[in-house]
Write a protein that binds this DNA or RNA. Structure first.
Lengths: 229, 229
DNA sequence: GTCTATAGTGCGATAGAC
DNA sequence: GTCTATCGCACTATAGAC
C-alpha cells in the first residue's frame, strides 16, 4: 500500500469539521425563521437540537421521533423549540440542506491534486475522514432521504449522486490520460461510493474490530486500485 | 470475464421465489395468530397486505405508514386487517422473521460447489438474483432493521451479518487452499456485501442505465476477483 | 425567551352489527 | 370474515402567562 495522501489528524487540522460549525451555518442561512435575537444563543441551542435529532433519528427514525422526545432530550420545552423552527418538517429540511452544503464544500476543498491517481486517493480519504468525524450526519442523509418532499427530491441532486459524479469525473480523466485501465467508469464510481458508504452505515460492525479509518482508507484505495491496472 | 455460474433465468427456474410463496410460509408459521380458517384465503389476503407494507414502507417508512394507509391500499377495512395480525408491531416482526428465513434458505441452497472460486461466484450470483427478484424485501430488511425490538436485535443475528459470515467462510477456505491471495478476509467479505447491497438499495440508479443483473454480477465478480490474485 | 396548558387532529385498536 | 363506528391516547402546533 502506498502512503495515504494525508492522515486523519492532518485532515481535521486543515478545517473545522464539527456539528457546531454546521449549526452556525444553519443559523446564518435561516436567520429569518429563527426567533432568537442573540446569534450565539441560537447556535448553541440549535446545536443541542440537531444533536438530539440525529441521535433520535438513528434509533427510531425521524418520522417516529416526536417533538416530546426532542423536548426531553434537549431540555427545552415544546414552546421553546418552536422558536428555532416553524414545523417538524422545516426542521428536517433545514438540517438536510445545510448538512449537504457543508459536506460537499469540504469534499471539494480536499481533492485538489491535478494527477488523477492522487486526486482519487484524496477524494477517498476526504470522504472517509469526513464521515468518520460526522457519522450520524451521513447516515441521517442516507436513511431519511425519503422524507424529503417530492419537489426537493427532484430539484436537489442528492448528495450521493453528487459525490458519485465527482468520482466518475476523476476516473474519466485518468482513463483519458491512459493512467487508469478500466472499462466502465460509472460502475466503478458506483462501487467506490458503496465502499465509502459502508464505513458510516455499518459503524457497529467495524467498531468491534481492530480497525481505524486510516486502515480502512488504505484498504479501499488498494481494493479499487487493483481494478485500475 | 469468465462465464457466470448460472443465468438469472436458470436461477428462477430452480426454485419458486415469489412474495406469494413467502406469504404462504408466513401463514404456516403463524397459523395460531391468524383468525382465518381457509388457508388459501389467508395466503392471498396476506400477500396483498405484505405487498402494501413493502410499498408503503419504501416511500414513507414503516413507522410513518398508518393502518389507514394499509387499509386503503389493500381494500380491507381496519377491522378485517386485525384478523391477520394482532398489532402493527406484530405484523412487522412476522414479515421480518419470515423473510429472513426464506432468503437465507435460498442463498444456502444455491452456493453448493466445493471449489471456493466457483462457490464465491455462485454466492454472488444467488444474492444478486434473489435481490433482483425481491428488491423491496431486501431494502425493507435494511431500512427497517431499527424497528426490531431490542430483544430480537440481540438474539437474532441480522441477515446482513449472516451473509457476510457466509462470504468470509468461502474466502477463508480459498485462502487456506492457496487459491486466493488476500490479506484481510473479513474486510473483503464486508466489501463484497457492500457491492451486493448497492444493487437493491440503489435500484433507481441502475434502472436508468443499460444494465441488467447479470452484467452487474459479472462486474462484481471481476471487481472482487482482481483482489484475489 | 421560555414556560405551561390546551386546542385540534390522526393514530392504533376494538366492539358489535351483519 | 368483514364492515362501520368509536374509544382513548399521543401527536403537532399554538396561545398566553411570566
Amino acid at each position: 500500500m502506498d502512503r495515504l495522501p494525508f492522515t486523519y489528524k492532518e485532515f481535521l487540522s486543515k478545517q473545522t469539521i464539527t456539528l457546531e460549525e454546521i449549526c452556525r451555518g444553519l443559523v446564518k442561512t435561516n436567520r429569518d425563521r429563527i426567533n432568537i435575537k442573540k446569534e450565539e444563543r441560537a447556535v448553541q441551542n440549535l446545536h443541542r437540537i440537531v444533536q438530539a435529532v440525529l441521535s433520535l433519528s438513528q434509533t427510531k427514525g425521524f418520522s417516529a421521533m416526536s417533538l416530546r422526545d426532542l423536548s426531553q432530550e434537549t431540555d427545552l420545552s415544546m414552546g421553546a423549540l418552536y422558536n428555532y423552527f416553524n414545523s417538524k418538517e422545516e426542521l428536517f429540511q433545514m438540517i438536510y440542506t445545510q448538512g449537504r452544503t457543508s459536506v460537499f464544500d469540504t469534499l471539494e476543498a480536499n481533492a485538489v491534486a491535478s494527477d488523477p491517481e492522487l486526486r482519487l486517493q484524496q477524494s477517498i480519504c476526504a470522504h472517509l475522514y469526513l464521515s468518520e468525524a460526522l457519522p450520524r450526519v451521513f447516515s441521517f442523509f442516507f436513511m431519511e432521504a425519503r422524507n424529503l418532499p417530492a419537489q426537493l427530491q427532484k430539484n436537489i441532486i442528492s448528495l450521493e449522486q453528487l459525490t458519485e459524479g465527482f468520482f466518475e469525473e476523476i476516473l474519466q480523466e485518468g482513463k483519458k490520460k491512459k493512467q487508469f485501465a478500466l472499462e466502465d467508469t460509472q460502475l466503478t464510481a458506483s462501487a467506490i461510493k458503496a465502499l465509502l458508504q459502508d464505513w458510516y452505515l455499518k459503524r457497529y460492525k467495524f467498531s468491534t474490530r481492530r480497525l481505524n479509518v486510516e486502515k480502512y482508507a488504505s484498504f479501499v484505495i488498494d481494493f479499487v486500485g487493483a481494478n485500475l491496472k
